[in-house]
C-alpha cells in the first residue's frame, strides 16, 4: 500500500512539474495577423492559461486552455472569443474551442508538412469541435 502511494505521489509530482507554462503561440499567418490574434487572446488574459492558433489557408484554428475555475463558463468564453476573432478576420473561417482535445490536435498541426494530411487534420478538428454529446 505504501509503495502504491509513493509511486502515485511521484507521478503526480512529475506531471505537475512537466506541465507547460502559460503561453500563446500563433503560426502560419503573416506577422501582423499573428500579432493581432495574440492581442485578441491576451485581452482575456485573466482566464486563458495557454493557447495555440494556426492559420491554414482560409481557416483559423484556435485551441484555448482556460483556468480551472473559468471552466464553468467555457461555452461563454468560446462564444466571446469566436466573435472577436471573426470581427478581426472576416475572411477567415474561425474554429475556436476550449476543449483539450482540440488544443492537442491544433498543437500537432504545426508539425505536419504534407498538404494532404494537413487538410485532413483540419477537417477532423472542425468536425470534432462541432460534435456534442
Amino acid at each position: 500500500m505504501k509503495r502504491v502511494i509513493a509511486i502515485a505521489g511521484t507521478c503526480l509530482l512529475l506531471a505537475g512539474c512537466g506541465a507547460g507554462a502559460g503561453e500563446i503561440r500563433v503560426s502560419g499567418g503573416e506577422p501582423e495577423e499573428n500579432q493581432k490574434v495574440e492581442e485578441v487572446l491576451k485581452e482575456k488574459d485573466g482566464r486563458i492559461v495557454s493557447a495555440v492558433a494556426v492559420f491554414v489557408h482560409e481557416d483559423l484554428l484556435v485551441g484555448v486552455q482556460v483556468k480551472p475555475f473559468s471552466r464553468f463558463s467555457k461555452t461563454k468564453i468560446e462564444e466571446e472569443l469566436t466573435k472577436e476573432l471573426e470581427k478581426a478576420f472576416p475572411e477567415e473561417t474561425v474554429t475556436l474551442s476550449t476543449d483539450l482535445k482540440i488544443f492537442w490536435e491544433t498543437d500537432k498541426l504545426d508539425e505536419l508538412e504534407e498538404e494532404d494530411k494537413l487538410h485532413k487534420k483540419v477537417e477532423t478538428i472542425k468536425s470534432l469541435s462541432k460534435e456534442e454529446t
Binding site: S97, D99, L100, K101, W104, L128, S129, E131, T133
Partner: peptide, 14 residues
C-alpha cells in the same frame, strides 16, 4: 480516450 482516439472532452464521457 481523448489522447488515442477522436474524442473531445464532451464526447469522451460515454
Amino acid at each position: 480516450y481523448m489522447y488515442f482516439f477522436d474524442f473531445t472532452e464532451r464526447t469522451a464521457g460515454n
